[in-house]
Amino acid sequence: NKFNKELQWATWEILNLPNLNEEQVKAFIDSLRDDPSQSANLLAEAKKLNDAQA
């Protein structure tokens, strides 16, 4: 389904953001699992944090 694909994509993207530490990655992945419908928003937040920590 749509959420499953978005969840998989967001998870992959977050795992590959180079500037997030392990705790941050875990927190984003946990949030994705808690509410897959928020995957686009969570991915945007993760990318923003990744850029800020570059």
Rank of each mutant, 00 (worst) to 15 (best):
F28R: 01
E45L: 15
N41V: 13
D51F: 13
N4D: 15
K26E: 07
K2A: 15
L49N: 02
A44W: 13
L17T: 01
F3D: 15
A46R: 00
K2L: 13
I14N: 01
N4H: 13
A27V: 10
K47P: 00
L42T: 08
N4S: 05
I14G: 01
N41I: 10
D35F: 07
E6S: 04
W12T: 05
E6K: 04
W12E: 05
A10G: 02
A40F: 14
E23T: 13
L43R: 05
N50Y: 01
E13R: 14
A10T: 08
Q38M: 09
P36T: 04
I14H: 01
I14L: 11
N19H: 07
E45Q: 13
L32M: 12
E13I: 13
D35S: 09
L43A: 05
N21G: 08
A40Q: 11
A52N: 08
L17E: 00
W9G: 03
E6T: 05
Q8P: 02
L32Q: 01
L43M: 07
Q24R: 02
K48E: 10
S39Y: 15
E23N: 10
L43P: 01
V25D: 00
L15E: 10
A52Y: 12
E13Q: 15
A52W: 09
N4I: 11
P18L: 08
S37F: 10
N41A: 09
F28Q: 00
K2H: 15
F28G: 00
F3R: 09
N1W: 00
P36V: 05
K47G: 04
L7I: 08
S31E: 07
A44E: 08
N21M: 11
Q8R: 07
P36L: 08
A10W: 06
L17N: 01
Q24L: 03
L42G: 01
A54P: 07
I29V: 07
Q24N: 02
T11V: 07
P36Y: 04
F3N: 14
N4T: 06
P18I: 09
Q38Y: 08
D30E: 12
K47V: 10
E45W: 15
E22D: 12
Q8K: 13
N50A: 05
E22K: 11
D35Y: 06
L42M: 08
L15Q: 13
L20I: 04
E22G: 11
A46Q: 00
N19G: 05
Q24W: 02
D34A: 14
L42F: 09
L32V: 04
E13G: 09
L15W: 07
F3P: 15
R33E: 10
A10L: 08
I29Y: 03
R33Q: 12
N19Q: 04
W12A: 05
P36G: 03
E23M: 11
L20A: 00
A10R: 03
D30V: 14
N16Q: 09
I29F: 04
T11D: 02
K2F: 10
A27L: 11
Q24T: 04
N16M: 10
L43K: 02
K2I: 15
S31K: 14
A46F: 02
Q53S: 07
E6L: 14
Q38T: 09
N19S: 07
A10K: 03
N4G: 08
A46V: 02
Q8L: 10
A44M: 13
Q53P: 04
K47M: 14
Q53G: 05
A46K: 00
A52I: 12
W9I: 12
K47T: 07
N4Y: 11
A40M: 14
N1I: 04
R33H: 14
S31H: 07
Q8D: 04
R33I: 13
L20G: 00
R33D: 04
L7Q: 05
Q53I: 10
